[in-house]
């Protein structure tokens, strides 16, 4: 049976997580930045179409999703802090809350997609909805991978020593989870709130 308490303390300031994960995060943010440029170019070309389509999106659900992800991220931070302190119980509890609250995002997103489907709106309805479904869909895929990574961390938190290696793992997953958050924070105003000037 592995040692239940380990933990590390007194670390110098460092880039959290595995350094390579940041390559993925920066490249991915670059891809989304490109998505936003493509969207902006489309919006400049057809402001009326984009504005009319935007009004059919439910900004309240978008805001709810933002709050869900931010709250979920808060517990992620607590889980990382607990890992650094070597508190296994707190790591497991906070990871479970991160996942549980995060799953609310999936529920609202699926509700939103279903409502759009019921209204006869799909990927090829118009340019705005192409971007809406493509960008939120790719973001949703990031979310699912994040949930998978969090579940893996729950399993690791049960059996592994809470040592420096574990902290690197949980920091890496935490950075990724915050990126999922950050991308949504950028997607939400762009798709749901930004009015044609």
């Amino acid at each position: 049976m592995p040692q239940l308490k380990g933990g590390i303390s007194g670390q110098a300031h460092h880039l959290p997580g595995d350094s390579g994960v940041w390559t993925f995060i920066i490249a991915d943010m670059g891809a989304f930045a490109m998505f936003f440029l493509v969207f902006t170019a489309g919006r400049m070309a057809s402001p009326d179409l984009f504005e009319a389509s935007r009004q059919h999106l439910d900004a309240t659900l978008g805001l709810l999703n933002t709050l869900i992800l931010l709250t979920s991220s808060l517990f992620m931070v607590k889980a990382v802090e607990a890992a650094r302190a070597g508190e296994r119980g707190a790591v497991q509890r906070n990871l479970a809350l991160t996942i549980l609250i995060g799953l609310g995002f999936a529920v609202t997103k699926i509700m939103e997609y279903k409502a759009k489907g019921a209204a006869g709106i799909g990927l090829t309805t118009n340019e705005f909805y192409t971007y809406y479904f493509a960008f939120t869909g790719i973001h949703f895929l990031h979310f699912i991978i994040g949930i998978g990574a969090l579940l893996m961390m729950v399993a690791k938190a049960r059996r592994d020593l809470l040592d420096a290696k574990f902290v690197t793992w949980i920091e890496s997953v935490g950075c990724y989870w915050h990126m999922v958050d950050l991308l949504w924070i950028m997607l939400f105003p762009l798709l749901y709130l930004l009015r044609a000037g």
Partner: peptide, 10 residues
């Protein structure tokens, strides 16, 4: 380098 390994995954 790790960055290149991650780049490939991306």
């Amino acid at each position: 380098p790790k960055w290149l390994a991650w780049y490939g995954i991306w």
